[in-house]
Design a protein around this nucleic acid. Structure first.
Lengths: 160, 160
DNA sequence: CTTAATTACTCAGTATACTGATTATCAGTA
DNA sequence: TACTGATAATCAGTATACTGAGTAATTAAG
């Protein structure tokens, strides 16, 4: 009876949430492998923040968080570490003294450009099991699925 | 020049790793929303461990970790919390005194069965943007991609 | 049978993510 | 202008994940 109940239950390893969790863990591991091999000490989250600030100098933390879908409390620590590494600077905004505006340092820009090939290599490796057509379809489906649920997280993507 | 460099760079929000990270965050948020609404205090990771132990009583932590692709150091804390909640018991194995064998309590089994509909509802919601055919294709591609990179993480899935 | 290698678990330390609270500041309104 | 509400950042606390190290116990090798 109990055996039948259990046998009939949804198996964890086939659940979408579990598959996504595993993929995320492997993606992070691949990122670290490639980026460390290239001689850099950057996490995926740190790279994303650095890259986004480089494209929008003088951005404040809340806006940055929205553009890369990070939680507002998470970004504080991420920026702390990027500032500690000398890749970003943080200062009180002129227009709004509540806000902190961010700028990439020269070292930060060099690091960003130099680390990018390794980051892109990691992106390729995580999809190595799929053909070119399958990769495109995977990305299309993932983006489509994300659009429908974007607002259900505390850290939705806010393009604009 | 610098502008051209930046404009030509890979955009974070289109990178597979970033899409996967966002999806995982939303999947966790949906899991919590559904499971809390149903009156349970369980994380995705705790649910997976509980479900797997229920199907393999007397399993040890290392084997469990392999079956659900968790890191061996992560599982210690997860089990700690499940034991603290009275859902699992942990005892030294008879056959190998290094190992700790796990069992679901009566409360644990009740919780597992009662929470499962909410967990499944969360799985549906995270793919709500996709048609039935697209969902199947998304899962097929995700599993295929995962198979090719499974061993690149410190916590690979070890079926069997 | 004793040593070497391996394995199971745990711990310390770091880095996301989140909940919920607090402080400082800004914006709109009576 | 005083008040109200909203916003930006931070902090405390909890829960994954991982690196690397350490302990205890088992297995394999010589």
């Amino acid at each position: 009876m109990a055996a039948r109940k259990l046998a009939g239950m949804t198996r964890i390893n086939d659940m979408p949430g579990h598959l996504i969790r595993r993929f995320q863990q492997i993606a992070v591991a691949l990122f670290h492998a490639e980026v460390e091999a290239a001689g850099f000490d950057l996490t995926p989250v740190q790279y994303a923040a650095l890259e986004r600030v480089a494209r929008s100098p003088d951005i404040d933390q809340a806006t940055l968080a929205g553009l890369i879908a990070y939680d507002r409390t998470t970004i504080t620590g991420v920026i702390d570490r990027l500032v500690a590494k000398g890749l970003l600077t943080r200062k009180v905004s002129d227009r709004d003294r509540r806000a902190r505006t961010l700028h990439v340092t020269d070292t930060g820009l060099e690091t960003l450009h130099a680390a990018t090939p390794a980051v892109e290599a990691a992106q390729d490796r995580m999809l190595q099991g799929l053909s070119a057509g399958e990769r495109a379809e995977f990305l299309r489906l993932t983006k489509k699925a994300l659009e429908a649920v974007n607002d259900l997280s505390r850290a939705p993507l806010k393009e604009r």
